[in-house]
Simulated assay, not measured.
Amino acid sequence: MKKHILVSGAGIAGLTAANFLAEQGHKITLIDRSSSFSKAGFLISLKSFGVKIMSDLGLTQNLLAASLPSETVHFIQTNEKIIQSIDYDKMHENIERSVLISRGGLHHVLYEAIKNEINILFDTTISQLEEKPEMTKVTLSNGNILDADLVIISEGLRSSTRERYFTNYQLEDFNTLYVGGRLKQNHEKKVGVFKVYIDVNKMLSIYPIASDEIAIQCYIRSFEDVSTLKNNASSILKNAFDDYNPEVKQLLDNLLDEGLFFMDKMGMVNAPNLINGRLVLLGDAGYCPTALSGMGASLSIYGAKALTHFIAKYPENILTACDRYNRLMQPIIEKFQTNAKNNAASFLPKSEADLEKFVSGFRAADDTAIQQIMTEPIVLTKDQENFILS
C-alpha cells in the first residue's frame, strides 16, 4: 500500500529520501522554507558510502559532472613547512573515491532528478501537527491541511519542528566557529592542489577549484554564543589569522570584501530516539555530526537510504520501519560523532604542545598509516552497508 509522506526540509537528506520514496511509488509532498534553490554554497566532500548511494540512485554521472577537481592536499604549518601530503587517488585505492562538490551542487543534482516527480512547495513550513490513530494531520504555513502517513523532519541542525515535537534530544555546542566561502579571483595556484593550515585552536583550508575561483574554509575554536559570533564574523576571521603570511591575509580580506561566505557555530544533535509516533528525524535534524566528522553529507544520504529501505521492507507497518531505522542508526551516529570529536582534538590542537605532538606524529606516518588514518573512520561494516540489524 502506497503512503502519503511529507518531507519537511529539502536539503540533501530530504531530497535523497524523496528520490528513493518516489521510486517506490509513494505520494511525496516536499516543503522548504526557502523561496528557491541555488547551486551556490560552500564545499563538501562526499565520501565512501555516500558516493555509493548516489550510484544506487543512478546519479553518478550527474554527480561527477558537478564535482570539482581534487588531486592533492598538503597539510602545512603556519611557516609553510609541509606536515604531510596526501594524494587523493592513492588514499582511495580501496574505497569509493571521494567527490569534492559544493553543497549547492550536490543539492542541485538531487533536486533535478526529482523535481518533476513530486509536489514541492517553497516558502512553506509546518505550522502544526496533530497525531491521529492512523495518520498525522499537518497544517502548513500557507494554510493548507493534509493527512500524512509519515512526516520526515529534515530541517537541519536548528530544526524548529524537532524543537516543538521532540523532547528527548540535546543540541550540543561544539564550541567551534565554521566559515566557508568562495571567491572569484584570478590566481596562479594549481587547481585541485589544496593547502590546510594546522594551528592551535584553528584550521584554515584553501582550495583553488578553478583558474578564477578559490574556496576557503576555516574552523576557529570559540566559546562565544552564535549571535555574538555572527555579529563579529569579519573581525574574528581577520584577528584569528592576523599573524599569517601577507598572501593568506589578503585572500581573507578579499573574501570578506568581495566573496560569498557562510558562517555558523557548529553543533551536534544527540537524539537517543529519532522517532515520535509518525514523526521521524532525518539528517542534521536528527544526528548532525558537525563538519569536522567529514561525513555530514554522506551520513545524511545514508540515513535517507536506510529509512526508505525499511519503509520498502515493511510496507504495511510504517511504525515498524521507523523503529528499525532508529535502531540501525544509533551506533552509526555514535561512531561518526566520536570521529568528529577525535578530529577536533587532532586538527584543532588546544595548545602548542598538542600541536607539536600532532605535527611530529602525522609527519612520521607512512602511506599505509595515512590511508588507515584517513579512510578507516569513514567506512561502515558490511551489515551496516546492507542495513542489517545486529
Rank of each mutant, 00 (worst) to 15 (best):
T375L: 13
K305S: 11
H107C: 10
E352L: 15
S34P: 01
L59A: 10
N239I: 07
Y197D: 11
H92V: 05
G361M: 14
E23I: 11
L328G: 06
N343S: 14
G143R: 04
A148R: 04
A13T: 01
S102Q: 08
D147H: 15
D212C: 03
I82N: 15
Q170M: 09
A364R: 11
S98P: 07
L146F: 03
S234L: 05
S55R: 12
T124Y: 05
R324F: 11
I220W: 07
R158M: 12
L307E: 00
V7A: 05
M295I: 08
T136Q: 05
S234H: 06
E258D: 07
P133M: 03
E112F: 08
E356W: 08
A240T: 09
T125S: 11
D284S: 02
I76K: 15
Q24K: 15
D147I: 09
P272H: 06
N239C: 07
Q61L: 04
Q24W: 09
N175E: 10
Q185M: 13
D242T: 12
F336R: 04
V7K: 08
R324E: 09
E80P: 03
G277D: 04
F362C: 12
Y111E: 07
S38H: 10
L355Y: 10
V280R: 00
N273G: 04
A365K: 12
